[in-house]
Design a protein around this nucleic acid. Structure first.
Lengths: 110, 110
DNA sequence: TTATTATATCGTAATATTGCGATGTTATAG
DNA sequence: CTATAACATCGCAATATTACGATATAATAA
Protein backbone atom coordinates (compact mmCIF):
# COMPACT_ATOMS: atom_id res chain seq x y z
CA UNK A 1 0.00 0.00 0.00
CA UNK A 2 0.94 3.62 0.19
CA UNK A 3 1.05 3.66 -3.57
CA UNK A 4 -1.49 5.65 -5.56
CA UNK A 5 -3.51 3.33 -7.80
CA UNK A 6 -3.21 5.41 -10.95
CA UNK A 7 -4.32 2.53 -13.19
CA UNK A 8 -7.91 2.87 -12.03
CA UNK A 9 -8.18 6.51 -13.06
CA UNK A 10 -8.34 8.12 -16.47
CA UNK A 11 -5.29 9.74 -18.03
CA UNK A 12 -7.04 13.06 -17.71
CA UNK A 13 -7.63 12.59 -14.00
CA UNK A 14 -4.04 11.54 -13.42
CA UNK A 15 -2.72 14.44 -15.47
CA UNK A 16 -4.86 17.04 -13.75
CA UNK A 17 -4.02 15.66 -10.30
CA UNK A 18 -0.33 15.73 -11.26
CA UNK A 19 -0.54 19.41 -12.11
CA UNK A 20 -2.34 20.22 -8.87
CA UNK A 21 0.11 18.19 -6.83
CA UNK A 22 3.12 19.93 -8.37
CA UNK A 23 1.71 23.27 -7.20
CA UNK A 24 0.77 21.81 -3.83
CA UNK A 25 3.75 23.02 -1.85
CA UNK A 26 4.23 26.56 -0.52
CA UNK A 27 7.86 26.64 -1.65
CA UNK A 28 6.80 25.93 -5.23
CA UNK A 29 4.06 28.54 -5.09
CA UNK A 30 6.63 31.00 -3.72
CA UNK A 31 9.14 30.11 -6.44
CA UNK A 32 6.58 30.72 -9.17
CA UNK A 33 5.54 34.04 -7.65
CA UNK A 34 9.15 35.10 -7.35
CA UNK A 35 9.97 34.21 -10.95
CA UNK A 36 6.88 36.08 -12.13
CA UNK A 37 7.83 39.19 -10.20
CA UNK A 38 11.42 39.11 -11.40
CA UNK A 39 10.41 38.23 -14.99
CA UNK A 40 13.43 35.94 -14.87
CA UNK A 41 15.63 34.49 -12.18
CA UNK A 42 18.54 32.36 -11.25
CA UNK A 43 18.33 29.64 -8.65
CA UNK A 44 20.76 31.21 -6.21
CA UNK A 45 18.52 34.24 -5.73
CA UNK A 46 15.91 31.86 -4.39
CA UNK A 47 18.27 30.45 -1.79
CA UNK A 48 18.60 33.95 -0.36
CA UNK A 49 14.95 34.79 -0.90
CA UNK A 50 13.35 31.68 0.62
CA UNK A 51 14.85 30.14 3.73
CA UNK A 52 15.65 26.77 2.22
CA UNK A 53 18.92 25.05 1.41
CA UNK A 54 20.24 25.11 -2.13
CA UNK A 55 19.68 21.38 -2.57
CA UNK A 56 16.05 21.73 -1.51
CA UNK A 57 15.34 24.60 -3.89
CA UNK A 58 16.98 22.71 -6.72
CA UNK A 59 14.65 19.79 -6.01
CA UNK A 60 11.54 21.98 -6.06
CA UNK A 61 12.69 23.60 -9.30
CA UNK A 62 13.02 20.14 -10.78
CA UNK A 63 9.43 19.28 -9.95
CA UNK A 64 8.21 22.47 -11.55
CA UNK A 65 10.33 21.72 -14.60
CA UNK A 66 8.79 18.24 -14.76
CA UNK A 67 5.31 19.59 -15.39
CA UNK A 68 6.82 22.07 -17.84
CA UNK A 69 5.57 25.22 -16.12
CA UNK A 70 9.11 26.60 -15.92
CA UNK A 71 12.11 26.15 -18.11
CA UNK A 72 15.80 26.59 -17.40
CA UNK A 73 18.41 27.96 -19.74
CA UNK A 74 22.10 27.74 -19.00
CA UNK A 75 23.61 31.21 -18.73
CA UNK A 76 27.32 30.88 -18.23
CA UNK A 77 27.80 29.14 -14.92
CA UNK A 78 24.33 29.84 -13.64
CA UNK A 79 20.91 28.73 -14.84
CA UNK A 80 18.15 31.11 -15.77
CA UNK A 81 14.74 29.77 -14.82
CA UNK A 82 11.58 31.36 -16.14
CA UNK A 83 7.91 30.64 -16.69
CA UNK A 84 7.11 28.80 -19.89
CA UNK A 85 4.32 31.04 -21.12
CA UNK A 86 2.84 28.42 -23.41
CA UNK A 87 2.66 25.76 -20.72
CA UNK A 88 1.45 28.28 -18.18
CA UNK A 89 -1.51 29.04 -20.42
CA UNK A 90 -2.16 25.36 -21.09
CA UNK A 91 -2.22 24.62 -17.38
CA UNK A 92 -4.46 27.60 -16.76
CA UNK A 93 -6.79 26.32 -19.48
CA UNK A 94 -6.87 22.84 -17.94
CA UNK A 95 -7.79 24.29 -14.55
CA UNK A 96 -10.41 26.53 -16.11
CA UNK A 97 -11.98 23.60 -17.92
CA UNK A 98 -12.23 21.83 -14.60
CA UNK A 99 -13.56 24.77 -12.61
CA UNK A 100 -15.92 26.10 -15.21
CA UNK A 101 -18.04 22.97 -14.96
CA UNK A 102 -21.59 23.58 -13.88
CA UNK A 103 -21.86 22.73 -10.22
CA UNK A 104 -25.47 23.70 -9.62
CA UNK A 105 -26.75 21.77 -6.65
CA UNK A 106 -30.12 20.18 -7.22
CA UNK A 107 -29.96 17.28 -4.80
CA UNK A 108 -30.43 16.86 -1.09
CA UNK A 109 -27.88 19.47 -0.03
CA UNK A 110 -29.68 22.43 -1.52
CA UNK B 1 13.30 16.85 8.23
CA UNK B 2 10.49 15.57 6.07
CA UNK B 3 8.39 18.37 7.46
CA UNK B 4 7.31 21.30 5.32
CA UNK B 5 8.67 24.56 6.75
CA UNK B 6 5.39 26.48 6.53
CA UNK B 7 6.63 29.22 8.91
CA UNK B 8 8.88 30.65 6.23
CA UNK B 9 6.05 31.18 3.74
CA UNK B 10 3.18 33.64 3.73
CA UNK B 11 -0.31 32.60 4.79
CA UNK B 12 -1.42 33.15 1.24
CA UNK B 13 1.25 30.81 -0.13
CA UNK B 14 0.40 28.15 2.43
CA UNK B 15 -3.30 28.48 1.76
CA UNK B 16 -2.97 28.31 -2.00
CA UNK B 17 -0.60 25.34 -1.79
CA UNK B 18 -3.06 23.62 0.54
CA UNK B 19 -5.84 23.97 -2.01
CA UNK B 20 -3.65 22.66 -4.81
CA UNK B 21 -2.46 19.76 -2.70
CA UNK B 22 -5.99 18.73 -1.76
CA UNK B 23 -6.82 18.42 -5.46
CA UNK B 24 -3.51 16.70 -6.16
CA UNK B 25 -4.75 13.13 -6.13
CA UNK B 26 -6.58 11.41 -9.01
CA UNK B 27 -9.13 9.86 -6.63
CA UNK B 28 -10.10 13.30 -5.36
CA UNK B 29 -10.33 14.69 -8.88
CA UNK B 30 -12.50 11.69 -9.80
CA UNK B 31 -14.71 12.18 -6.74
CA UNK B 32 -15.31 15.83 -7.59
CA UNK B 33 -16.11 14.99 -11.22
CA UNK B 34 -18.49 12.27 -10.12
CA UNK B 35 -20.32 14.53 -7.66
CA UNK B 36 -20.60 17.22 -10.32
CA UNK B 37 -22.05 14.79 -12.86
CA UNK B 38 -24.52 13.36 -10.37
CA UNK B 39 -25.37 16.80 -8.96
CA UNK B 40 -25.31 14.99 -5.61
CA UNK B 41 -24.05 11.69 -4.33
CA UNK B 42 -23.62 9.31 -1.48
CA UNK B 43 -20.29 7.83 -0.51
CA UNK B 44 -21.23 4.23 -1.23
CA UNK B 45 -21.81 5.01 -4.90
CA UNK B 46 -18.18 6.03 -5.05
CA UNK B 47 -16.99 2.72 -3.67
CA UNK B 48 -18.68 1.01 -6.64
CA UNK B 49 -17.67 3.70 -9.08
CA UNK B 50 -13.96 4.01 -8.22
CA UNK B 51 -12.00 0.88 -7.41
CA UNK B 52 -11.02 1.85 -3.90
CA UNK B 53 -12.01 0.49 -0.49
CA UNK B 54 -14.69 2.25 1.51
CA UNK B 55 -12.20 3.38 4.17
CA UNK B 56 -9.99 4.94 1.50
CA UNK B 57 -12.83 6.83 -0.14
CA UNK B 58 -13.99 8.08 3.23
CA UNK B 59 -10.50 9.41 3.87
CA UNK B 60 -10.36 11.24 0.53
CA UNK B 61 -13.81 12.71 1.15
CA UNK B 62 -12.53 13.99 4.48
CA UNK B 63 -9.67 15.84 2.81
CA UNK B 64 -12.03 17.46 0.35
CA UNK B 65 -14.31 18.43 3.22
CA UNK B 66 -11.32 19.95 5.02
CA UNK B 67 -10.77 22.55 2.34
CA UNK B 68 -14.55 23.09 2.23
CA UNK B 69 -15.00 22.28 -1.45
CA UNK B 70 -17.62 19.65 -0.61
CA UNK B 71 -20.08 19.35 2.21
CA UNK B 72 -21.87 16.32 3.62
CA UNK B 73 -25.39 16.20 4.92
CA UNK B 74 -26.74 13.22 6.83
CA UNK B 75 -29.62 11.66 4.95
CA UNK B 76 -31.07 8.88 7.04
CA UNK B 77 -28.36 6.27 7.36
CA UNK B 78 -26.29 7.56 4.47
CA UNK B 79 -24.49 10.84 3.88
CA UNK B 80 -25.14 13.07 0.93
CA UNK B 81 -21.99 14.77 -0.30
CA UNK B 82 -22.15 17.66 -2.71
CA UNK B 83 -20.11 20.57 -4.00
CA UNK B 84 -20.23 23.68 -1.86
CA UNK B 85 -20.96 26.18 -4.62
CA UNK B 86 -19.77 29.16 -2.63
CA UNK B 87 -16.43 27.57 -1.73
CA UNK B 88 -16.05 26.19 -5.23
CA UNK B 89 -16.27 29.71 -6.60
CA UNK B 90 -13.90 31.05 -3.96
CA UNK B 91 -11.33 28.42 -4.83
CA UNK B 92 -11.81 29.10 -8.52
CA UNK B 93 -11.26 32.80 -7.83
CA UNK B 94 -8.09 32.08 -5.86
CA UNK B 95 -6.69 30.00 -8.72
CA UNK B 96 -7.69 32.63 -11.27
CA UNK B 97 -5.96 35.35 -9.26
CA UNK B 98 -2.83 33.24 -9.32
CA UNK B 99 -2.98 32.30 -12.99
CA UNK B 100 -4.07 35.63 -14.34
CA UNK B 101 -0.78 37.19 -13.27
CA UNK B 102 1.24 38.64 -16.10
CA UNK B 103 3.96 36.19 -16.99
CA UNK B 104 5.50 37.99 -19.93
CA UNK B 105 9.09 36.87 -20.32
CA UNK B 106 11.58 39.69 -20.82
CA UNK B 107 14.73 38.10 -19.47
CA UNK B 108 17.30 35.65 -20.77
CA UNK B 109 14.84 32.89 -21.73
CA UNK B 110 13.02 34.86 -24.37
C1' DT C 1 -34.26 -6.03 20.71
C1' DT C 2 -31.28 -7.64 17.09
C1' DA C 3 -29.83 -7.19 12.32
C1' DT C 4 -28.44 -4.60 8.61
C1' DT C 5 -26.70 -0.71 6.07
C1' DA C 6 -23.84 3.31 5.45
C1' DT C 7 -20.17 5.65 6.83
C1' DA C 8 -16.27 7.09 10.07
C1' DT C 9 -12.24 6.13 12.50
C1' DC C 10 -8.26 3.34 14.07
C1' DG C 11 -4.11 0.94 13.36
C1' DT C 12 -0.71 -0.36 10.43
C1' DA C 13 2.20 -1.46 6.29
C1' DA C 14 4.01 0.31 2.03
C1' DT C 15 5.49 4.09 -0.26
C1' DA C 16 6.27 9.13 -1.16
C1' DT C 17 7.80 13.68 0.12
C1' DT C 18 10.62 17.08 2.38
C1' DG C 19 14.92 18.86 3.70
C1' DC C 20 19.75 18.95 3.94
C1' DG C 21 24.74 17.82 4.01
C1' DA C 22 28.04 15.91 1.05
C1' DT C 23 29.61 15.35 -3.27
C1' DG C 24 29.50 15.67 -8.48
C1' DT C 25 29.49 18.58 -12.58
C1' DT C 26 30.31 22.34 -15.53
C1' DA C 27 31.79 26.88 -16.70
C1' DT C 28 34.43 30.88 -15.91
C1' DA C 29 38.53 33.16 -13.29
C1' DG C 30 43.10 33.38 -12.24
C1' DC D 1 46.34 23.72 -14.71
C1' DT D 2 43.91 24.86 -10.20
C1' DA D 3 40.43 27.58 -7.91
C1' DT D 4 35.85 29.07 -7.35
C1' DA D 5 30.96 29.73 -8.30
C1' DA D 6 26.43 27.94 -9.52
C1' DC D 7 23.86 24.49 -9.74
C1' DA D 8 22.48 19.17 -9.83
C1' DT D 9 22.37 14.79 -7.79
C1' DC D 10 23.01 11.31 -4.04
C1' DG D 11 21.98 9.39 0.24
C1' DC D 12 19.75 9.52 4.26
C1' DA D 13 16.59 10.76 8.26
C1' DA D 14 12.16 12.59 9.56
C1' DT D 15 7.66 12.90 8.39
C1' DA D 16 3.46 12.55 5.39
C1' DT D 17 0.41 10.09 2.33
C1' DT D 18 -2.06 6.20 0.52
C1' DA D 19 -4.57 2.13 1.07
C1' DC D 20 -7.08 -1.19 3.55
C1' DG D 21 -8.85 -4.47 7.08
C1' DA D 22 -10.95 -4.23 11.39
C1' DT D 23 -13.80 -2.03 14.29
C1' DA D 24 -16.92 1.75 15.99
C1' DT D 25 -21.06 4.46 15.33
C1' DA D 26 -25.56 5.79 14.01
C1' DA D 27 -29.86 5.16 11.68
C1' DT D 28 -33.36 2.38 9.86
C1' DA D 29 -35.52 -2.52 9.33
C1' DA D 30 -37.41 -6.48 11.07
Amino acid sequence: MGLTKSEIFTDEQNKLAGLFRALGHPARVAILQYIINQKACICNDLVDELGLAQATISQHLKELKNIGIIQGTIEGKSVCYCIDEKLWKQIQAAFNAFFNQEVKVTGCCS
